[in-house]
Design a protein around this nucleic acid. Structure first.
Lengths: 247, 247
DNA sequence: CGCCACTTTGATCCATGTCAAATGCGGTGG
DNA sequence: CCACCGCATTTGACATGGATCAAAGTGGCG
């Protein structure tokens, strides 16, 4: 029997709430794998397997040769590159159900590194081995093209809006994107885990740490959100939409 | 005989310098087509054909169903989206040899419109018909994945740097990107055609028109470039690299 | 309990957006 | 060929959002 991400390795006990497979971005690929012909020479348990990760652990580093794509089952991650001075630049966050590393497949190299923001677990699909599974390749490629295309389309939007938004709009939109991603996964839309530091958010949004802090405080004063230690409670969705989209 | 972009339709006389096929981004796909089996049922001249475009003409509009990918043979184009107020937002430029519309393939919809900045010509590859050419599909998909992956990787870079660069850095990097694209195509690296307006550049870079004007003037005063009517002469490449990368 | 990293808050300065006016350029009609 | 008009570009003056520097507050962990 082929080991897919839907059949977690029993040795990996995991105490955290995990996203179920049919809400997982990797699922289409897992499906493909399930449908691969028996006897295609694929060793059991190779294609997708669960793996726990520690806080701070790197899934892979920038410029490392491409090996696998990952699906986040629980926890959260940040994608980082480095500027000339060696300072970390956050270029993205990954939450439960997100796919990590898809675009590395094209260049055979990861264009950024990925670090875990908290303990969690991932499903790991070793694509180079998958290439030998026979006729499933075409279907896999189709799925991949769709994912890449969506990423490109989304990126265009994100880029072109981020660049001309002010600090309130960027942070509002950022929070809303977290809310929406929570909603898609069926999680609470009021309470958002905020596993990344203010510095990470600032780096991602192209703002100074202090500005992030100030704007979040302002949001709280205006009763749009309530700040907690490592989470925020969303009080006024409409209000957030208003500040983030006045464009 | 299959009509590829390498065999321009004689009825389309074109007076402008065109990029040769082996420098064209579409060439890998054209190659695939050449290698498609004879008798595969593909009508002659359908796969890729040359087409002239007028200044201001739209290749396709935003949200239009995906039909074809284009390769720029001559001329230049801008990709545009629209904000809530209906104002145009430039999200990219396409020059000779560039591919247009690749990511539309994934979603079956173009995520932006494309307008010609000057007279020119394109090769037009109608992908939906290509899907019926038989076994070439897998190779085509491979090429497509590579292109999309590169686009995603490049976008990550562009996004994450644009957002935290100041006006000089953005414009310097923009000019350098034009220089590099010229170099790849074997064109002059000193004289750059600047077919887009200052407003287009400003929109693309997320700056005010006035700021673009001021910074270009500053560049000229510092003898980095010389401004012409619709072109710029690059005087000091190293200087440009210096202003654009101090990050 | 105390250290250290992170966050918040305050004060100041500068880059860039905005408004306004001048200049330049291409096209059109006389 | 010239005069005029409209539009793009340039230049100037000013206002302000956010970066930067500085310092105080907060929380986690040994």
């Amino acid at each position: 029997v082929i080991q897919s991400c839907c059949k977690p390795d029993q040795t990996n006990s995991n105490f955290f709430q995990e996203i179920v497979c049919n809400e997982c971005s990797l699922d289409p690929l897992c499906q493909v794998i399930e449908y691969a012909e028996p006897g295609s020479g694929v060793p059991d348990g190779i294609l997708a397997r669960r793996r726990p990760v520690q806080r701070g652990e790197m899934l892979f580093v920038m410029n490392q040769p491409f090996q696998a794509i990952y699906a986040v089952k629980s926890g959260s991650f940040k994608a980082v590159t480095y500027d000339q001075t060696g300072a970390e630049r956050v270029v993205g966050f990954f939450l439960s159900g997100d796919l990590i590393g898809v675009e590395g497949m094209a260049n055979q190299t990861y264009s950024y590194g990925v670090r875990a923001l908290e303990v969690g677990s991932v499903c790991c699909l070793e694509v180079d081995r998958l290439a030998h599974t026979g006729r499933s390749t075409e279907v896999l490629q189709g799925a991949l093209i769709t994912m890449l295309g969506q990423e490109v389309a989304m990126n265009h939007l994100v880029t072109s809006s981020l660049i001309r938004q002010n600090a309130e709009q960027r942070l509002g939109a950022f929070i809303l994107s977290l809310v929406r991603r929570s909603a898609v996964r069926g999680l609470s839309q009021r309470n958002l885990g905020l596993s990344m530091s203010r510095s990470d958010m600032a780096s991602y949004l192209g703002l100074a740490r202090e500005t992030v802090s100030r704007v979040l405080s302002r949001f709280q004063n205006n009763e749009l959100i309530r700040l907690r230690k490592h989470s925020i409670e969303v009080l006024d969705l409409d209000g957030l939409e208003r500040v983030s989209s006045s464009d």
